[in-house]
Computed example of a mutant assay.
Amino acid sequence: MLLLDKNEAQGVRTAVLDSIRQSSREDIGSGRVAHKVGIVTGVGPASGIGTFASRLFAREGARALYLLDLSDVLPDFASELAKTFPDTKITFVRGDAADEATVRDIVARAVKEEGRLDFYFANAGISNVRPKEWGKFDPNSRESQLQALRHGGRTLDMISVEEFMEIQRVNVLSGFLALKYAAPAMQDAAPAVGKRIPGGSIVLTASVAGRLANAGSLPYSASKAAVVSMAQTGAYEYAGYNIRINAICPGLIQTDMTAAVFAAARSNHNEGATGQINPLLRHGLPVEIAQAALWLVSDDASYVNGQPIPVDGGLTASMPYQRKLVKRPAKL
């Protein structure tokens, strides 16, 4: 077999990423979640998974979306979403997805106003706690890039108990509260508003770091392992109610959370190397995780339950190794 030229491989990678970005801008859907009412947490950052998922849910016909985040840009995003998809009622709440009263109230509000709750995408999460005195991460600052990379790469003895507990609070407690309050709200049918069959779908954002070592720091990995376990255990907790609970396990995705990694790669003229250890030889985009969430909250995934689903380019399909690129023979 002939070795695949490195430039040709890079060209394929670039074409695929460009195609995915282009398709994410489309405004016409096929109604995959038509008439459904949902809640999404972790919404706001322009390149965030929750932001892309909210857009997909609206594009695919959701009747009402309730968006929850602490981001200052959430109102602007909600306004833009409502203008683009006027048939979807958009409601935003600025709050903490790991605060019990906030989650209880947004679930109660959705049910009171819409008469039903069909899905909850518990996407809010953090990878570490950035010191307040550093301010916001500046992707154009070399010093900010290095600062963020050093902070993310700290060894266990350099991480405080307080930071460990905050990561668990945000990542784990937010998922627990989603199950605690959203699942009971999905248990009953609501014929008056078109929900003839009880049930719903809860999707938790986990990570490949919750399934395998060496994909994140210990506090982050521990939190995501707990999220995976909650999806599996929660599915049995609500057995018989037609409530499906699953977790998505992203690989390396280009989001605000990983901005420092990509900024450093760009400054070193090495951006093409990101994500090279999976069989697709590339990183993922947030819309690719959002598409998985869309599938899981839709009726298309009606028999998928209690699963940690990797969306990682094949990273966890085998032991990682640096494979040789080969030129496949042309089809006859």
Rank of each mutant, 00 (worst) to 15 (best):
L117S: 05
P45Q: 09
A231D: 04
L56G: 06
E113I: 04
G216L: 13
L285P: 03
D138C: 12
K224A: 10
A182Q: 01
A82H: 05
G152I: 11
D157R: 13
R104H: 10
D105C: 02
L74G: 04
Q147F: 04
G284D: 06
S201I: 01
T316C: 13
L332C: 09
G175A: 08
A183S: 09
K112P: 05
S302K: 08
L173A: 03
V33T: 09
K324I: 15
G42M: 03
L315P: 01
V208W: 05
Q232E: 12
L2G: 15
V227G: 00
G234P: 01
E26S: 15
V37D: 00
I90P: 02
A64C: 12
A293H: 05
P75S: 03
V170S: 11
D99S: 04
A206F: 02
G42D: 03
A290K: 09
A292D: 08
L332I: 13
F262T: 13
L252A: 11
F92W: 13
V93Y: 05
G251H: 10
T255M: 07
Y241Q: 08
R104A: 13
F77E: 08
F119D: 04
E113K: 09
S160M: 14
R244I: 03
A185N: 02
N140T: 14
N7V: 14
S47V: 15
L17Y: 03
A122V: 08
G194F: 06
E80Q: 12
S19G: 13
G240M: 06
V193T: 10
A235V: 00
A78C: 10
L325Y: 09
D99T: 03
S141K: 08
N171V: 11
T155Q: 15
I309E: 03
I28K: 13
N242M: 01
D188A: 08
G153E: 12
Q22S: 15
I39R: 00
D87F: 00
D87C: 06
R13I: 14
G234Q: 01
L204M: 05
A178N: 00
D299M: 10
P131Q: 09
A301W: 11
R109C: 05
T255F: 06
T316N: 13
D118C: 11
A189K: 02
L325S: 10
S267N: 15
N171T: 14
P198K: 06
D312T: 02
E237H: 08
D138M: 10
D96R: 06
E60M: 06
P308C: 04
M165P: 02
A226N: 06
R109P: 01
G153C: 07
